[in-house]
Nucleic acid binder design. Structure first.
Lengths: 229, 229
DNA sequence: AAAAAAAAATGATTTTAATCAGCTTTCATT
DNA sequence: AATGAAAGCTGATTAAAATCATTTTTTTTT
């Protein structure tokens, strides 16, 4: 259970900060950020922001995982990204001047900090390292999404599942992958039933181990091979 | 037939510049850019840059259309974007520090200018309007690609074709859409045969008119309706 | 601990779109 | 204008994955 007091996160001691975009901040900048940010505890399944609304600031994940998704015509979610500790989310719409094109929802209990739009834009203007980091991040994601689109168009569901499991393996690190079958299906871009059947195949082939809800990757090599290029 | 002399494009008189990211440049900046850029004529089907190589500069389309695509496992192209006059392409990989994740190939005769990496990065550093424009562009595209991914995952080929035709209609403006069936299929993310059959359906339903190679959109409303959200 | 709700799993069936094979038209080149 | 190549088209067949209908298991709530 996470601390719900809202007060205990301090940028200077934040474990998530070091591999975040704020990682290279000097002491002064860390202190400034610490004063500008507010913290909040989010319970599992809570919305951080919703497609169609306009951003008023950015969110910085201190603890917990978040799904970022769009909804298609029939309301079905397509998960675009799963964000983990250290990630800053919601800055795209701030730069584009548009409404959010995606929604963000916690997948587990989270501690999330918030920096108001003006403060964040001011940071970007005055801190070229942060700015370059943001531009690099935007660009990297753009490339990843080109690959994502191609995978959706050309790979079989089986290949996409292998690919997705590799990504999830990275995100969850030494924890076990912990998603509902439905979320996983919405990440792979398939029907829940199809996903379930394929997971069983992967289990039978010794690629993964299923502990009810949680998944463990046993054979990384086979996954790489299955996922293709 | 375009001018092949390589010398006739001048930023100050460039028709494509006004709605480009360079559109708001002051006279001084226009002159500077003009000195830094070089121009080249590309014939139809020529490569501008190739997936896997590293960028040395950015390209600015003065005249002509360019397809931007990745190749899947079996070498099949997935067209991610079709760039037209005024667009700057190839800057993503420059910011991300990675190799190109996409290739760019001319769809017709093109006049394309080139600005070397250092010059361009210098512009970005010193010109905040350009910089903000680039960040806005990166962000907008990132949002578009989230939608693209969702369309691929959830829409039928018929819906995707309607969506693609709307985009192509915008790109080609008052010209008629002029792509091979294969390129169009690779944009929609389907087999060429399937695309051909669907185009015929659309023709029979009075949505488009087919002039051998070129397509004309007759019923925009119906397309919007068909494409869904 | 029981009840209710949510998530996971399974089987049967249908649908969509890919693939394969062959044919025709158009375009580019000599 | 003739030739070859590329692009476009058509029909038949197959394969992949979605959908539908239930059942079982797990999780949450009372």
């Amino acid at each position: 259970m996470l601390d719900k007091s809202h007060k205990h996160v301090t940028c200077a001691t934040c474990g998530a900060r070091k591999d975040s975009l704020f990682g290279s901040f000097c002491d002064h900048d860390v202190e400034l950020t610490n004063e500008q940010k507010t913290c909040a505890y989010f319970k599992k399944g809570q919305a951080i922001f919703i497609e169609g609304s306009f951003p008023r600031g950015v969110f910085c994940l201190n603890q917990g995982k978040v799904k970022v998704f769009t909804r298609g015509d029939e309301g079905k979610e397509q998960i675009i990204h799963i964000a983990k500790e250290g990630e800053i989310i919601g800055f795209r719409a701030m730069f584009s001047g548009e409404a959010y094109k995606v929604s963000a929802l916690t997948l587990e209990e989270c501690n999330i900090c918030y920096i108001a739009k003006d403060d964040f834009l001011n940071m970007i203007d005055t801190n070229s390292t942060l700015r370059n980091g943001i531009m690099k991040e935007l660009s990297k994601e753009l490339g990843d999404r080109a690959v994502f689109i191609t995978n959706m168009a050309q790979k079989s569901v089986r290949e996409r599942l292998a690919f997705a499991l590799m990504i999830l393996g990275d995100i969850y690190g030494d924890e076990q992958i912990n998603l509902t079958r439905e979320d996983m299906a919405n990440f792979v871009g398939t029907a829940t039933e199809t996903l379930i059947r394929l997971l069983k195949d992967f289990k039978d082939e010794g690629i993964i181990e299923i502990h009810t809800r949680k998944l463990e990757i046993l054979d990384q090599e086979k996954l790489i091979h299955l996922a293709g290029k």
